[in-house]
Simulated scan of single mutants.
Amino acid sequence: MQGQMCWLSSLGADGEKILHLQVSPNQPWRPYNACREYAVPDYKIPGGSKGWATYQKLLKAGWTLVPSARANEFVNNYSDSIIQNQ
């Protein structure tokens, strides 16, 4: 299965960016380490990017990298629709 990947901040706009995955278009973005079926262990490099090894694996498997701005639009729209449905 081919999905989409994006580097999003873990804690708001100023947080460290980590790899997020979207398995299908209507699913929310999830941190790579919450997707055990796709994630691989991180490289043991001090200060290395969280999810870099998973990114390399999924890129080779045909996954698409999406710009952060586009993914953030989806996140904001998804959050708004949840709030409206409560």
Results as ranks from 00 to 15, higher is better:
K60C: 11
G62C: 07
W29N: 01
I45L: 15
S24Y: 08
P41Q: 11
A39G: 02
Q86R: 03
P31K: 14
M5W: 05
Q84I: 00
A53W: 09
W7Q: 05
A13Q: 11
A69P: 00
W7G: 03
Q56D: 11
S49A: 15
G12I: 09
W29K: 01
S10V: 13
K50D: 13
V40A: 10
I18D: 09
S68Q: 12
P25M: 06
G48F: 10
I45G: 07
A39D: 11
G51V: 07
Y43S: 10
M5L: 14
L59I: 13
Q86H: 05
G3P: 12
S24D: 10
P28T: 07
W29M: 01
A53T: 11
H20F: 15
A71V: 03
T64W: 03
G62N: 08
N85D: 02
L59A: 15
L8Y: 08
I83D: 04
S81L: 04
G12A: 09
T64D: 04
L65I: 07
K44Y: 06
Y55C: 12
K17W: 06
R70D: 13
N85Y: 00
Q27E: 15
N26L: 11
R36P: 04
L21V: 06
V75H: 02
N26R: 12
M5C: 09
Q4I: 05
W7D: 05
Y43N: 10
E37M: 13
P46G: 08
T54Y: 02
S79I: 00
V75P: 01
G47N: 09
V40N: 11
S24V: 11
A39V: 12
S24R: 13
P31F: 06
L19R: 06
E37G: 14
P25Y: 05
G3L: 09
L21C: 05
N77V: 03
Q4G: 03
A71K: 03
K57L: 12
W63T: 12
C35F: 04
K50S: 14
I45H: 12
E73H: 03
A13R: 12
G51I: 06
L65C: 05
T64N: 04
M5R: 07
V66E: 10
L19C: 11
N76Y: 01
S68V: 02
E16C: 09
T54V: 10
G15P: 13
E73D: 12
T64Y: 06
A34H: 14
G15E: 07
K57W: 03
R30M: 13
P67V: 00
L65M: 14
I82C: 02
S81A: 12
Q84W: 00
L65R: 04
A61V: 01
A69D: 05
T64L: 12
C35G: 03
G47K: 08
L8A: 05
